[in-house]
Design a protein around this nucleic acid. Structure first.
Lengths: 354, 354
DNA sequence: TGTTGGCACTCGAGTCTACCGAGTGCTGCC
DNA sequence: GGCAGCACTCGGTAGACTCGAGTGCCAACA
């Protein structure tokens, strides 16, 4: 109780803070538990740098930390493990911005130096990179191309009554959707309608498509153009810009030893929509790390999520995320996600700007 | 030994065969083991349909089957489990072509009735369907569009020195690749070069691109066109046609209880190239089922693979496959894969033909 | 001669016990 | 307030034991 009083009344940092020694102890417990996955005993902590007191004192402090909810004991006579609140404090106050080690920094640089080809490929490979860097499952959400202006619209005939509406956006993405016609459409009509659409839509964004394109005088062309516009509207609604790329889901199998946990986490990861909205949710709440139940998504209660927005040209679009057990290496994960997110944004910006 | 002589000398089916009773016993063991995942004892088998003998007789036959390599015993005083050879015989001789049950058949029909939109989406969702049908991990390899003729080529400007080469193929797929130029290229030059390429390449396939397109008289246009052609060559080489879609990898976590096995299998599944060539390998060897070590790929020794080629318009391109534990439900898996493969082929054919 | 009931045997799985030791909470001394 | 000392707790491991499903063998039988 003395310890408790000390913490709540005379702590160095008044309110949500812990005095320096408690902080050092919490840090030691978190670090040790992250690397060993075993409950941490007072002896180990006493030997840690920054904690120059005996194990007995550490024990007393640990009792206090447990009372305040930062640590938990799986059972009496076991060491302590951090609670979600403990991790939260660690992430918020005990870990400096942190940078990647040299090897990883080079790996990121090399990757983006050699990144080329289609944007989708690059996002996919980026998720692999991030998984490699952190040993967590990585999630990359492609930039929503809402604001990207249309560069080209084309109707390509695939058959007498089927065409493909192909639209190229300024960010280098290509969207397409099949269009079916009730009657045969001659190639010339298709081409004319395509050009008409292109003229009308160029530099619009998919988010702000006009309700209709002006008449051309030829009713058949108008009909075809209207059908094409409809297809583009579908594309814009489907929002393939929110495409999710998951890298290294197998890492989740290494993170847990209960096969049930693994299965349920993998099941979640298969649901793009769920994952994307989960990431958005976390970001919307202004967090970059969601630990345990903080994201309010029960099935991932034993996981932590790291999210970093990708900003392209000032605006933010796209997300880079990491999923791992709550005892993940937060500093490293954050640093890696930030580095990759930054580089990715720069790279995407290049394409858009060039 | 009497039993053994009986089997090897006087069996009804002379060579690779088993007499009817042994076959019935093997069938019972396989079926029981598939559904229970527990070693099967002689009593259970004696009660199975088609086996009207006592457990003692079953035991004698089991000894023979074990001697011939169809069954194995995890340890003395445990029941028998089928060996890879046992599964093989079961698949080859003891299971009739088999059809899907009504509910699943309807599920497949409904799916393809409502399948629409982009081909990639459909393939992705098809893998999900197949996983749902079989409770295995499904693999769908997109049709290589080697033979599909080019319907449209376009160079779209993304910046003064960057364009996107976009090619639409008759099968409804769209490929693209960025093209960079050493100098600024005016839009008109780009458009002219694009049209020139389109004229020269239309109805070629990506597999048989010409070495060069004829000169236009304008050297800058020629240079741009050559760069565009080069980009298309990259696209053709990259062969996104062999794109792999993996559905329901989480099912592998339910199939094994060793988390290590799960992890290594998932790691394999993340390597597109490995999986695609594995499937191709199995098909090339004329198999539709590869059990255990038959595929010669060590890390998947405890898995079985079911492969069905997808034939579009007579020719075969694309593959659907299933990955599960060796004790998977082969008849159902085969039936589902065949049904889905067939429907998928028909659907892809429709697009190509229409 | 093939089939069967009977029987002794095997061995994994589960239960119980004892023990070890890492770790705790407490207490009294400095 | 910090610390050494100490009794205590309790999970994990190892060994003894039991249980029972399942086996292999054998003698009897149709």
């Amino acid at each position: 109780m003395a310890a408790h009083d000390h913490a709540s009344r005379t702590a160095t940092v008044p309110d949500d803070g812990l005095d320096q020694r408690k902080a050092a102890i919490l840090t030691a417990v978190v670090n040790e538990y992250i690397s060993s996955a075993q409950p941490v005993g007072s002896q180990h902590v006493a030997g840690a740098p920054g904690v120059n007191v005996s194990s007995a004192t550490v024990r007393a402090e640990m009792v206090a930390l447990e009372g305040e909810g930062y640590l938990a004991q799986p059972h009496t006579s076991a060491g302590r493990i951090p609670t979600d609140k403990g991790y939260r404090f660690f992430v918020d106050h005990l870990t400096q911005p942190g940078t990647l080690d040299a090897a990883r920094r080079r790996q990121v640089r090399d990757f983006f130096d050699h990144a080329h080809g289609e944007i989708e490929d690059m996002l996919e490979r980026t998720s692999g990179l991030l998984a490699d860097l952190t040993d967590c499952t990585a999630m990359v959400v492609g930039p929503a191309h809402g604001p990207a202006p249309v560069r080209s619209v084309q109707l390509v005939s695939l058959g007498s009554r089927v065409a493909l509406a192909v639209v190229v956006l300024a960010d280098g993405t290509v969207e397409k959707h099949p269009v079916e016609f009730p009657d045969d459409v001659p190639d010339t009509t298709l081409a004319t309608a395509g050009q008409h659409l292109q003229g009308a839509l160029r530099d619009h964004s998919l988010d702000s498509l006009p309700d209709a394109v002006g008449p051309t005088g030829d009713p058949q062309v108008d009909a075809v153009a209207a059908a094409g516009l409809e297809a583009l509207r579908v594309v814009s609604g489907a929002g393939t810009g929110d495409q999710l790329y998951v890298g290294g889901p197998s890492r989740m199998a290494a993170a847990f030893d209960a096969v049930d946990t693994v299965r349920s986490v993998l099941t979640i990861l298969e649901q793009q929509l769920v994952v994307v909205s989960l990431l958005r949710d976390v970001l919307d709440r202004g967090l970059s790390v969601a630990i345990g139940t903080e994201h309010g998504f029960e099935p991932l209660a034993s996981c932590a999520i790291v999210v970093v927005p990708v900003s392209v040209e000032g605006g933010t679009s796209g997300t880079v995320g990491l999923l791992g057990p709550t005892r993940m290496n937060y500093p490293q994960a954050l640093a890696a996600a930030q580095a990759v997110g930054e580089q990715l944004g720069a790279r995407l910006g290049e394409v858009a700007r060039s």
